[in-house]
Computed example of a mutant assay.
Amino acid sequence: MPFAVLKPLRESRLVLALGLWMPVGILGILAASTWAGTFTGDAGIHWTTAAHAALAAVVTIAVHLLCGRRTLLSIGLGTLTFVLLVNLL
């Protein structure tokens, strides 16, 4: 039964639109969360962390655009970049 329902949904305009815009929304939410956590910490603005977040955002965007818009790859590498920068520098 579920597979019978999937066939018409695959060609639906709504599902196609969601497939296009959801990755952008996910990246936007992750970016907003990262920036909000950077600037609203207990000790105020941490400029080094903000620089790390900016660099990780650039890596995420670059990987997303250069590697065929693979959302998981771009989010993973961006997150890894941020974690490594925060912990190693």
Rank of each mutant, 00 (worst) to 15 (best):
A54L: 13
S33F: 08
G28V: 07
L72Y: 10
V5L: 04
L16Q: 12
R10Q: 08
A62D: 05
M22C: 14
L9N: 01
T79Q: 13
G37H: 14
S12F: 02
R10E: 03
W21E: 15
G37Y: 10
E11W: 02
T40H: 11
V24F: 15
H52L: 04
A62E: 04
G78W: 04
L89R: 11
N87K: 09
R69I: 12
W21Q: 15
T79D: 07
L30G: 07
A54D: 08
T49S: 07
I75F: 01
L88M: 12
L80G: 01
P2D: 15
L18G: 07
A51C: 05
L27C: 01
A31D: 00
G37R: 07
L30N: 08
D42T: 08
G28I: 04
L88G: 07
A32R: 08
L89M: 10
L27M: 02
I75K: 00
R13H: 08
K7A: 13
I26D: 01
L30R: 03
T81W: 00
A17H: 09
L80A: 09
A56G: 11
A51W: 04
L27P: 01
A50F: 01
G25C: 05
V59H: 12
F39G: 14
R70F: 09
H64A: 07
V5Y: 03
L16D: 09
T40D: 13
L84D: 04
L6V: 13
L30I: 08
T81N: 00
K7S: 12
V59S: 13
L9W: 01
W35M: 10
R10S: 03
L84W: 05
L27Q: 02
G25K: 03
H52I: 10
H46E: 08
T60K: 12
V83W: 09
A51K: 00
G44V: 00
A31P: 00
T71A: 13
A36W: 14
L72M: 11
L27N: 00
T49A: 07
C67M: 03
V83H: 06
L18F: 09
T38E: 05
V59W: 12
H46Y: 06
A50K: 01
K7T: 14
D42V: 08
P23M: 15
V63I: 04
N87V: 08
L73T: 12
M1P: 15
L18I: 06
L85K: 12
V63T: 03
A31I: 04
W47K: 10
T71V: 15
K7F: 13
T34K: 07
G28F: 02
A4C: 03
G44N: 02
I29Y: 03
A57R: 02
F39S: 13
L55T: 14
L18Q: 06
L77C: 11
G28C: 04
L73D: 11
N87H: 11
G78V: 04
R13W: 03
A31K: 01
N87C: 07
T40Y: 09
A54C: 10
L73R: 09
V58C: 10
V86A: 14
L88P: 04
L72H: 10
V63G: 01
L88S: 10
A54V: 13
R70V: 14
A31L: 05
T34L: 10
L77S: 05
G68T: 09
L55D: 08
P8W: 00
K7P: 06
W47C: 11
T79I: 09
N87L: 11
A51M: 04
V24C: 14
P23C: 12
G76H: 01
H64N: 07
V5S: 02
L73W: 13
G78F: 06
F82D: 05
A51V: 03
